[in-house]
Design a binder for these strands. Structure first.
Length: 822
RNA sequence: GGGGCGGUGGUGAAAUGGUAGACACAGGGGACUUAAAAUCCCCAGGCUGAACAAGCCGUGAGGGUUCGAGUCCCUCCCGCCCUACCA
């Protein structure tokens, strides 16, 4: 017998957390002979508060890692902080506390909160992205990208607040197109920016064959990359007596005879050259207006089509026709060629534009069985493929064939070729911000732009800066930072004052966990081979096209540089659902429905809060936080605690009885269910299975079978099955029941399929598919006997009546269905 | 407009094409208690019914496939999320 005490989570949780830490129980050694399992969750931003969403995500991820550990894997489950970014800078501006101080204080607090979860984090591997020993390598990576032509500097349009005199991230532009700080309308401005050439990997990034990711995420990345097959076609134009070519991109070369106008994006370099003097004033006014518009306004498809005629004409290369050149903001400089051929009959946007400006509409594609109609009577463009009409020598060419025929023709004529275009743009990584990793580049009067040599890294970010109200990066005003010498000539030079997008830091953190203390390299080849790629990655779906795409790009680029021998960073990906506030709304400070876990941890203990998070529902669905539901898990843990306290015996009775055999079946069934559920990240049903087992054992506890070896074995296995979900109570009871060593290093209980089978089952008897009777029968009943039993049953007979039995369906172990007809 | 996810009791939810509602929460009844809390036991999809007799209906709506559909197929309705002038 063990000493009976009351379940007191507060006491035991603190005790075991301390013990595990002292024992370094969760450190993943580099030299283990066991197979590795890299179990990763997206690292948090150190906001200073660990909220319910973190618990929801981390508790279940932790349970999975613990399950894998008990199943014989050397599990690496690291934790760290994505510590650069705007909130720290805003806190600095608002409260006058330095971003560095604010962030590190938050990390101290959050680390404590994370430890209260009792999760198996390997703190030996912790990384903090805002510390020099980490961002040194972010800078080193930038230099590698630069060296391989994957990082470049160019003028790129950015959101610009004319009042704050700075660029803004897209997230800082409010929905109505104004600056979040001062309310001024944000405009677009061309400034020098650093970009990474992610577009070079567009094609390979479309290949998801080596990873097991949610279909939804694959689709989102696929759409984001946006591959379009079509043709580049060059239209010619006379500029100051010279013939120049303007290319367009189209996915519908088959409609080229329907071109009745031509449109350039307002920013297109040709606009100034081709605008006639009479049209100049109007065109310039339009460009000015377009520039003032935010991207959000401009991309609103509901908006009326606007545009201005430039006064010039281009020549359609296929038929020599002259068509007017317009500029319009529905054509975007950043996509395709920044120019389009206007085919109003077969493109909805062109149709609307032509209608607005009285441009002719010519039908050139028509389904074979359709009569010609007057386009003036149409209500919209005809997008379907069909036979070419009004298309000179191409008349009668059908569907897809029409596309290839036109492409072949333009290629032969040398006025264009088949092309693939992607929606994906290069990744703009410069931020005119302080709290980020400095871009390791200097500008010298003699040598121009010079990358900082690797042996001079890190370029240290000053911990103390002064925030002035200019809105510019404070780094620009730090002489000690900005003023430096040229690495090439030693002459005076200026440092780049822009910092890197924080997504750079999070694009490779999972590599650093494998070799977190390496002072010589970002990681060793050995560490890569040992730990990467990540086996299971768990995180929010909101990162589907940002972080998750950038990380894939990083791995592919680094592989091509010779730093990796694998193609994808995350083999299996899982998106957890979102925990909503008690009002069913997304938790947010402004709504005032944010639930802090701390008070519930104090009241019920971490194990109950963990369990409740799992019990809310399927892991990928999230759910509404309801404090009253914590009671269910609390009661279960308490009852289980008491069950063991009152029934654990040291010398059980090993005799087999029918009752003990039934308990033994329950044991095998429960192991099977819990094993399968956790394997599939279904913690809600895993917990339900344990509850069922618990309830069943409670019913038996006053009977003799409670002293049987089978019963005791079941209690023991229950503890192990519970260990990943509620690690503290399981460890405590493991110790109380006289075991030595941690339960978390024990081997996961095994079940025998044979022994999960019942001796009897309830044979369901249906008549015409409706359940009419349930008969308890032996598990191995023959079909013949089942038939006899069913047909001989009085109730069943009354439902059959005088109808004729047509056939009998027998499903072994389940049911028998008697099909009758009158 | 495009893409995705979902719709099952009062609530959260279970259910390899085979007994719909496991497991819980809230609720009702009872036990214990001076009382409350906690704990324990019992009830609980809807309708008809005195019934713990029996029957009928029931997984957003309507069709279909099947001996049998919450589950598969088609059409539609509703909700949520993402995305959006991409040529």
């Amino acid at each position: 017998m063990i000493t009976r005490t009351k379940y007191n989570p507060k006491e035991i949780e603190a005790k075991w957390q301390k013990h595990w830490e002292e024992q370094q129980l969760y450190h993943a050694p580099d030299d283990s002979p066991k197979p590795r399992f890299y179990n990763l969750v997206m690292l948090p931003y150190p906001s200073g508060d660990l909220h319910m969403g973190h618990w929801y995500n981390y508790a279940q991820a932790d349970a999975y890692g613990r399950f894998k550990r008990m199943n014989g894997f050397n599990v690496m489950q690291p934790m760290g902080f994505d510590a650069f970014g705007l909130p720290a800078e805003n806190a600095a501006i608002k409260h006058g506390i330095q971003a560095h101080t604010w962030t590190l204080a938050n990390i101290v607090k959050m680390r404590e909160q994370l430890k209260m979860m009792g999760a198996a984090w390997d703190w030996e591997r912790e990384i903090i992205s805002c510390l020099p020993d980490y961002y040194k390598w972010s800078q080193w990576l930038f230099l590698q990208f630069y060296k391989h032509g994957l990082a470049y500097r160019t003028k790129a349009p950015a959101n610009w607040c004319p009042s704050c005199n700075t660029t803004l991230a897209n997230e800082q532009v409010l929905a109505n197109g104004t600056c979040e700080r001062c309310g001024t309308t944000v405009i677009r401005k061309e400034i020098d920016q650093w970009l990474l050439r992610i577009t070079k990997y567009a094609e390979e990034l479309l290949d998801f064959s080596q990873i097991e990711w949610p279909e939804k995420t694959v689709t989102m990345q696929h759409n984001w990359i946006g591959r379009s097959e079509g043709a580049e076609i060059r239209f010619s134009i006379e500029v100051e007596g010279q013939t120049e070519q303007i290319p367009v991109f189209t996915t519908r070369p088959d409609t080229i005879y329907g071109v009745t106008f031509f449109v350039l994006a307002p920013e297109h370099p040709f606009v100034a050259k081709i605008t006639t003097p009479q049209q100049r004033a109007e065109v310039e006014a339009y460009i000015d207006q377009a520039r003032r518009e935010t991207e959000i306004e401009r991309m609103n498809a509901e908006k009326e089509k606007t545009g201005v005629f430039t006064g010039s004409y281009v020549t359609n290369p296929i038929n020599g026709e002259q068509v007017p050149v317009w500029i319009a903001d529905y054509v975007l400089m950043g996509y395709g060629a920044g120019a389009i051929m206007g085919v109003p009959a077969h493109d909805q946007r062109d149709f609307e534009f032509a209608r607005n400006f009285g441009i002719p509409i010519v039908e050139v594609i028509r389904p074979e069985d359709e009569e010609p109609t007057d386009p003036a009577t149409w209500h919209g463009a005809k997008l379907a493929y069909g036979m070419m009409v009004n298309s000179g020598p191409f008349n009668g060419t059908p569907g897809e064939e029409a596309k290839t025929a036109v492409i072949k023709y333009i290629e032969e004529k040398g006025v264009g070729q088949a092309t693939v275009t992607y929606r994906l743009r290069d990744w703009l990584i410069s931020r005119q911000r302080y709290w980020g990793a400095p871009i390791p580049v200097v500008y010298c009067d003699t040598h121009g732009m010079v990358p900082v040599p690797e042996d001079q890294l890190p370029v240290i970010l000053p911990e103390h800066v002064e925030f002035k109200s200019t809105g510019e990066s404070p780094l620009r005003y730090e002489p000690d930072f900005v003023n430096t010498t040229c690495p090439t000539c030693g002459g005076p030079a200026t440092r780049e004052a822009d910092t890197m997008d924080t997504f750079i830091c999070s694009s490779w953190y999972f590599l650093r966990y494998a070799d977190p203390k390496n002072a010589e390299q970002a990681w060793s080849q050995e560490a890569m081979r040992r730990w990467l790629p990540v086996d299971q990655y768990i995180g929010g779906a909101e990162h589907a096209v940002m972080h998750l795409l950038y990380a894939r790009f990083f791995i592919k680029a680094l592989r091509d540089m010779g730093h990796m021998n694998f193609n994808e960073p995350f083999t299996r990906l899982f998106h957890q659902g979102i925990v909503l506030g008690p009002d069913g709304q997304k938790m947010s400070k402004s709504r005032g429905n944010v639930v802090a876990p701390d008070e519930y941890v104090t009241k019920y203990g971490a194990d109950t809060v963990r369990g409740y998070m799992m019990f809310i529902g399927p892991f990928d669905q999230g759910g509404t936080f309801k404090s009253e539901n914590l009671a269910g898990v609390w009661r279960f843990l308490t009852r289980f605690w008491d069950l063991i306290g009152e029934n654990w015996v040291e010398n059980p009775n090993s005799a087999e009885t029918p009752a003990s055999q039934a308990v033994e079946r329950l044991r095998h069934k429960t192991i099977k269910r819990v094993t399968e559920e956790i394997s599939n990240l279904r913690f809600n049903t895993a917990l339900a299975a344990l509850m069922e087992c618990n309830n069943a054992l409670i019913k038996l506890q006053s009977e003799e079978v409670a002293h049987s070896a089978a019963f005791q074995r079941t209690l023991e296995n229950m503890l192990q099955l519970l260990a990943p979900l509620a690690p503290h109570i399981a460890e405590e009871l493991w110790q109380q029941t006289g075991h030595t060593g941690s339960i978390h290093t024990t081997e996961w209980p095994q079940y025998n399929e044979e022994k999960t089978r019942d001796e009897n089952f309830t044979l369901v008897v249906q008549v015409n598919g409706k359940v009419r009777e349930r008969i308890d029968v032996a598990a191995d009943i023959s079909e013949q006997n089942a038939r006899i039993l069913a047909l001989g049953n009085e109730r069943v007979a009354s439902f059959i009546g005088d109808a004729t039995v047509q056939k009998v369906i027998y499903v072994p172990g389940k049911l028998i269905n008697i099909v009758v007809r009158k």
